[in-house]
Design a binder for these strands. Structure first.
Lengths: 218, 218, 218, 218
DNA sequence: TATGAATGAGATTTCATTCAT
DNA sequence: AATGAATGAAATCTCATTCAT
């Protein structure tokens, strides 16, 4: 009779597996730049799904297909990669926005506003969890807060240029800030399921968004 | 029993750190209701200062003048006391708002709007850290999210009644939500130091707030 | 609007109840002897159900209808009440055994053996959990071990007398011990569900028990 | 059993051992399989010495030469390692028994019975504390109980084969169980110091053991 | 560069026990 | 005698981080 013959199911369960880590899809070893990117992408998705608190660095590394130690070869700590992921996320948004606005389509204003609004809302819906984590962190972490301010400044300037480009009359900072925050907050509201919980449809929110922007653009 | 086991609250306090809140000169012991309240208050302040992540239950208990175990006599875990603190915080806000609106001052609309705006902004400034923690948590924790929705529904109904009371014409849900969120987000922006970092003065934000409300009220 | 109107079910759950302790069935206050008994009984049942490890003194007190502090007015610690409960349990067994043997029924030997066997098995089945806890504790706690030895000595003497009384020839200590332990262990085996898990019926074990005793008695 | 084996919880608490146990001169690091084994061995010895209740996971880890966290890399909790240690212990016993029986020495029956008896008794004496902890746990924990049953089944089958091999006539399950339990219980009795406290010598118990087995084997 | 076992500080949580009423 | 809120030491368990390979 083999010595281990009587291990019950329960016992087998309690005995940790030898931790075969799933071999990363693309081996493609030794490309530090790619490694870094993969880690950031994995982090962004994890933060988005389970929040800052719920994300642990070992998991990020594993999700990206690496061992825990690799994480610290590329980032000093969890906060650092959060910041990088934030950057990635903001960049992605701007790329899309630029494509819409700068894409130079001379189409009617309404068409532009529609496309912008749609894109931004979609973006928020995709990154709702990350945005919430960001808010939670920024209140405590000065670096994250500074990052956020920087982002906002860029946004303010962009809006200023947009108005100029569209021939609308310039708006004072407080006005622009109010519009941006309204936009952001309404999008979050949809992303976080608040609007739908209140029985408000996506299309109704979209109408509000268009109204807010339209009012500014004139 | 170790010799120090029965030190008074005062003695315990003096042995501790820079001693934030001076805990009960009069020990006023054995009042579980008060204990509970004190724990909630301590929790609210701690969450507000260092966020959800930065708060630990032992610290809450010590800040309230109790031993770690006492916490668990009153709350199942950190989330539970967060929810209670949230309740306390929302209640406080509503009490003040009711005092302003229901206070029945027949004064001009402008006066009312001013006082409301001021009060709400002040409240947000006081609880900015807590609000940020709330956003971060709600994205992950369904109970916190549900709590928040409930709060929002109340707010929507309140605004509806306010409009009726002021003789303004009723606004559809999406409109009301947009106004509430704009209000909230602008207040947070001030509370979180965003506005000032962008060189926007409190008074300018207040003007935006008044405008937003004024537009609705007509 | 009532301030607490929006407490969700989850929040209410997390808020501990004011801990109405169930008013003891029989108030019958201030009878320390009765209090002591009730505590021991409650302890015996709790130990029997959830083991020594799983039993906590506050629970014992509450189960008996008292407050935690009362426990320590009557017993120095958990071990002490375990010992007392053990005593109670052993006494109960002996009372029954005496009733059977000393009951003086002049009936045939077989009848006596049957009744004894039945009674002891029933007793073990009732106190199986307690017995297991006892074994676990005795290995670590010298007082419990001493108690157990004392009990065993009594048992050995009793068996000696029984043999004499029945006119059987005396058996040496090792023999008597072996019979007692076999008896005990087979009863435990039934009580702990071992026998039934092996597909062995209670009646088959009873036959073994009778055989063991019969052999000794001749 | 070592002198301090049966200290109570109170005693253990008061006597904090300075006792930095010098961890592994040769670090022999990074072999998870060895780490796991070392942890199990350390756990087995600790359980054996101070019982399940008296053992804490940090201590197991330290005793094996590791930090507390390492424990949880290999086992989900204390119960899990107990089960594994049980397995180790049972395996060790079977290996020895197989060596004796299967060792194929064609010597007289008496010789075989003697060696078996001796070995089993020695084994129980070595693992007396562990066995007691096992009994205490099995009454409460279904997984431990299941493990134990599994072990017993194996034992029953083994005995069956032994009888066949020796040319003895087969015994019904209840009979075999009775013999096994008697054997086990008498060995425990010696291991736990019961026999000696009753003035019964090891050799006398051995005689009983031999008798029990001899009767079965014929 | 990447690995991953190991770390250990620290947070969470329990519960035997105390003491003022 | 009984109470029960409070205690706090100690155990359980997590996870960001390190380091030898």
């Amino acid at each position: 009779m083999p010595p281990n013959a009587n291990r019950t199911a329960a016992a087998r369960k309690s005995a940790r597996k030898p931790a075969r880590n799933p071999p990363r899809k693309k081996p493609e070893p030794r490309d530090p730049e790619r490694t870094r990117e993969r880690l950031i992408e994995a982090a962004a998705h994890t933060f988005n799904k389970v929040g800052y608190l719920g994300t642990d660095t070992n998991r990020i590394a594993r999700a990206a297909g690496y061992a825990p130690g690799t994480f610290y070869k590329h980032f000093t700590d969890k906060r650092a990669i959060f910041l990088e992921a934030y950057l990635l996320w903001v960049d992605a948004e701007w790329r899309k926005i630029d494509a819409i606005v700068g894409g130079g389509r001379k189409g009617a204003r309404n068409r532009l506003v529609d496309r912008l609004t749609n894109e931004i809302l979609r973006h928020h819906q995709r990154w709702g969890g990350f945005r919430a984590a960001l808010v939670g962190l920024a209140a405590t972490d000065p670096d994250v807060a500074a990052f956020r301010i920087e982002s906002r400044k860029r946004q303010m300037a962009w809006l200023d240029q947009l108005l100029e480009r569209l021939g609308a009359r310039p708006a004072p900072p407080a006005r622009r800030l109010a519009v941006l925050l309204t936009f952001e907050r309404l999008c979050d509201s949809v992303a976080w399921g608040e609007a739908s919980a209140l029985g408000i449809k996506r299309s109704e929110v979209l109408a509000e968004l268009r109204g807010t922007l339209g009012e500014l653009i004139g």
